[in-house]
Design a binder for these strands. Structure first.
Lengths: 377, 377
DNA sequence: GCTTGTACTTGAAACGCATCAAAGGGGCCG
DNA sequence: CGGCCCCTTTGATGCGTTTCAAGTACAAGC
């Protein structure tokens, strides 16, 4: 069971080595009967091309790498999904690596991908991308997702600050007097959300605001714990509006409040912040802001293709994807037939299904808009 | 910005090519000062080793490939998480490919991984693994996850049939008279669940049972649609127990019923079948059976390691992981302080946290058991 | 029959690295 | 001072492909 190599196939089929290679890569160059003969031999021998050798000899392969901070975060999955579909559309493979919230690992996989002659690499970085100089010197297209900074490079991001702003404005509109933000702003995305919340509330100095740290992982369990803690306060010290920095947190809070006999949203309103499908399946609806993860992944691949196809690509390009506000609005309009402002996954799915999208999961609802970062800052 | 290669580093550092290679792979062989010089040069030049060349020259790399049918299915994510952690523990990388419910793609990525000189490959196959002969001829360790069949090979699976049986027995214990199974049994796993349900109910011919197809994707939206349909029936034609073949379906059903004014679980009980964290975050708890995805991923990697380390590995090995029943029981016991039998993610997390597990996500609660398949059939 | 052209096929060269036998250098002992 | 051994470094070799210039076979046109 030694490995079958191309020369074995060639010998066995009675043709030359180069011909077999052509059968694999340029079948149109071969006489149909030769091709058939070779294919039969390949199957008979169980030959599998050695990708490493292919890549070494042939330069880049048609595949992209995607490094994600975690796999169990719905937003990252939306990115993966969008990136996958777009990549396949261009005939590229997509390989995903899980950095597991570890920046050493993130760097590791990044280097791994860049060294594998990937055609392009995408990262959803955990922190600011102050890359080792090596990164920028390597001639592999790279796109940073869900983050923006002033360094040169390609970036695609949702507008996290706007997400915070929108949810805060929503709270104000609902007459909130006391807002509690739940979560640890460990990652830049979350930090930006908090920033957005503060900016929006700066216009309303009369509204009380507090931020509660939610433990390292921002899990539903953390949310539950804090929810329980909030429930035990005297009624007048209790917030009337809770914002979970992630939807999962918010959903934990809802569960705790409900368990403790505090009704949501009658007594306390709870909102999420990241449109995370993980948190959407519950029977109690959760108001949230939906960032277009799918679109971000898609646009990321498009930027990769752009860099590949242009000989002299732009040095820097910032793209901000779709206004979260519009998503909320659109779905809210539909949801008005129900009892309150709601974003639910199946309703989102229906919306996109009605738009004749082939497969509902994670499909974009919000149009993509390219906006120069400068216009924002 | 031409690619920096090892010879460039060697020339620049004034050492030979082999020395640089040693610096990368066997640093202990070098004099510390030489090593330091080389490392500095590597950083200065931004050298990144070409993985393809490494693999070509050096044989297999320490990395595993994992092909999953979809990324947005919680169970697959648990597998990925378990596999990832176990792989890292052994110093291996894990690369994930999304087959996107497409068996052509599944095959494609499988071949890709096998051809990349991966040390091992895992698949969660969509259908029965009647591989092309090529698969078995390639000397790369392979483990099939979440499936079992009689063909030779390595398999790790949850006991899907038992999952169905358990949920059906639960329904009987709750006094169900009319059970509705919701979902399309498109994949073998779901088929096995239905089989388990039928087997368990065969002992209770007086209980009415019906199966409703849920559309191609078994989404929450599909569940919602069917739930609405159930809600509109006259009360006496309505089931008193609904089983969603997936938790997502079940959660859609719950939402619909609740929306239509039918209370869960007072009027209709709804249960899931696959312990999918995606569906767990809601405020209305969902009874479900939790298959140990994390454990399956972990065990998969262990089997890979076994094949790698043993010169003459076993031809065939079937492993069934952990009883789902016990999970339900364990958590139910804890949940008794609340209002009903419940499995909720944060509670699961707490259980495992109490057990001093480092990171809660997807951690195993159920002990792993290796059981010969023969004992089951 | 010879030339030109067309349609395939060939095989050597290169891709960037790990490996390993061999060479080099330095210290120690007799 | 010579012989030995150990530690470090060297560089030629080969890994399995792709590529491409060069070759072959055959047909058409003169």
């Amino acid at each position: 069971m030694a490995k079958v190599k191309i020369s074995d196939v060639a010998r066995e089929a009675g043709v030359s080595l180069g011909t077999v290679s052509n059968a694999l890569n340029h079948p149109e160059k071969l006489r149909p009967e030769t091709l058939k003969l070779i294919n039969e031999t390949i199957n008979r021998l169980g030959y599998l091309p050695n990708q490493s050798a292919r890549q070494l000899a042939g330069g880049a392969t048609k595949s992209f790498g995607l490094v994600l901070p975690r796999l169990d975060h719905g937003f990252s999955l939306q990115i993966a999904s969008g990136a996958h579909n777009e990549a396949r559309k261009h005939g590229y493979d997509l390989l995903i690596a899980n950095a597991d919230n570890d920046d050493i690992l993130e760097d590791h996989y990044l280097r791994y991908f860049m060294g594998t002659q990937m055609s392009g690499v995408m990262v959803q970085p955990m922190a600011s991308p102050d890359w080792h100089p090596a990164m920028t010197k390597v001639p592999v297209p790279i796109v940073h997702l869900d983050i923006h900074c002033s360094e040169p490079g390609y970036y695609v991001a949702a507008d996290n600050e706007a997400q915070g702003r929108i949810i805060a404005e929503l709270a104000v509109a609902r007459g909130a007097r006391h807002i509690t933000v739940v979560g640890r702003a460990a990652f830049m995305q979350l930090t930006l959300r908090v920033l957005g919340i503060h900016k929006a509330l700066a216009l309303h100095p009369d509204i009380k605001i507090e931020v509660i740290d939610a433990g390292e992982w921002n899990t539903a369990a953390d949310g539950y714990g804090i929810g329980a803690q909030i429930a035990e306060r005297p009624a007048d010290e209790r917030p009337d509006f809770v914002v979970g920095l992630t939807d999962v947190l918010a959903s934990g809070v809802i569960s705790a409040l409900t368990d403790k006999g505090i009704s949501v949203p009658e007594q306390v309103r709870v909102a999420g912040c990241d449109g995370n499908p993980l948190a959407w399946s519950g029977a109690v609806p959760l108001t949230t802001v939906a960032p277009p993860g799918y679109e971000i992944g898609r646009k990321g691949v498009q930027l990769l293709m752009e860099q590949i196809e242009n000989k002299a690509p732009a040095k820097t390009k910032h793209v901000r994807i779709g206004s979260a506000a519009r998503t909320v609005t659109a779905v809210t309009a539909i949801e008005d037939i129900n009892r309150q402002e709601i974003v639910r996954p199946f309703l989102l799915e229906r919306v996109s299904t009605q738009n004749a999208k082939p497969h509902p999961t994670g499909q974009p609802i919000v149009p993509t808009t390219d906006i120069n970062l400068g216009a924002y800052l």
